[in-house]
């Protein structure tokens, strides 16, 4: 299957600003999916995109698959119902840093704890893009936003540490300056049974770059390349595969239990 067949072309042009990192994420995602469908490893009729609210959460609406665009912060709770009710669905959750870690933080840690079998792609642009650039739980200390005009007094969350602390078995961090690596990460996440979390550092030129001395999308991508490393280097953000383990996914445990109980019922 060609990735072009996966786009809802009638919805173009999309709403994203020029140079937005979400464009890269969409691009990489549909290519990864098309490869999986082509190889027969995934069934497009059973692949579902779920998202919350934010610029990043608009991406599912451009992809020709079943998709549920939910409420701010809650896509993982919706995904919990979808997956448990129909374990045959392959679910990809698209979310933002505000969506996943502020209003949705509770669902995030509990989905990781349960080991819900979903692939979470978090477009982490360090800001609330959709609402015009307010501070988020991943905004760096000191950074400017429309609600931290004197600089952010709060320390940020490391989302990967957060979900690993909650038990997520497969966690990676990449950036929109690493599209090839990101695509491979999405492949791995789709192959893993269980909670896969990909933290994608992404650029919001309109609402973050402009206020923080990163004048253009190109400058922001350079910043992402220069300030990240796949090795532990002082002063750099660690990217790469941060954890890759196996743990029985939630739906399997639930359905085993159901089989045990309902089998007993029929038998006795």
């Amino acid at each position: 299957m060609n990735w072009r067949d996966l786009i809802r072309w009638e919805r173009m042009p999309h709403i994203l600003c020029p140079g937005c990192g979400n464009g890269t994420i969409l691009n990489v995602l549909v290519r990864a999916l098309a490869e999986k469908f082509e190889a027969g490893e995934l069934d497009p009729d059973r692949t579902v995109l779920v998202s919350g609210i934010g610029c990043s959460s608009r991406l599912p609406g451009y992809v020709r698959l079943d998709s549920l665009h939910t409420t701010h912060g809650r896509p993982l709770a919706f995904a919990t119902g979808l997956k448990l009710a129909n374990p045959d669905l392959e679910i990809i959750v698209l979310t933002g840093d505000g969506d996943a870690a502020a209003i949705g933080g509770n669902h995030l840690i509990h989905a990781a704890r349960r080991n819900l079998d979903v692939t979470v792609i978090c477009s982490n642009n360090l800001i609330y893009g959709m609402t015009g650039g307010q501070v988020s739980p991943t905004t760096p200390e000191g950074a400017k936003s429309t609600t931290t005009p004197y600089g952010n007094p709060e320390p940020p969350f490391d989302l990967c540490e957060l979900v690993m602390g909650a038990g997520a078995p497969h966690v990676e961090r990449w950036t929109t300056a690493h599209p090839q690596q990101l695509k491979r990460a999405i492949h791995r996440a789709l192959e893993r049974d269980g909670f896969s979390f990909i933290d994608v550092l992404s650029q919001c030129p309109t609402n973050y770059g402009r206020r923080n001395d990163l004048k253009s999308p190109r400058e922001m991508l350079e910043w992402l390349r220069e300030n990240t490393s796949t090795k532990d280097e002082p002063g750099k953000i660690r990217i790469g595969i941060l954890r890759d383990e196996e743990r029985k996914p939630f739906h399997e445990r639930v359905h085993e239990l159901i089989e045990e109980v309902s089998g007993d019922e029929e038998g006795g």
Binding site: L68, A77, F78, T80, G81, K83, A85, N106
Partner: peptide, 19 residues
């Protein structure tokens, strides 16, 4: 499933209904 709160509970119910 016992969810983490009631917001998540109705979300999961709606998700199941779409399944």
């Amino acid at each position: 499933v016992q969810m983490e709160d009631e917001i998540g509970s109705l979300a999961a119910v709606i998700g199941a209904s779409w399944a």
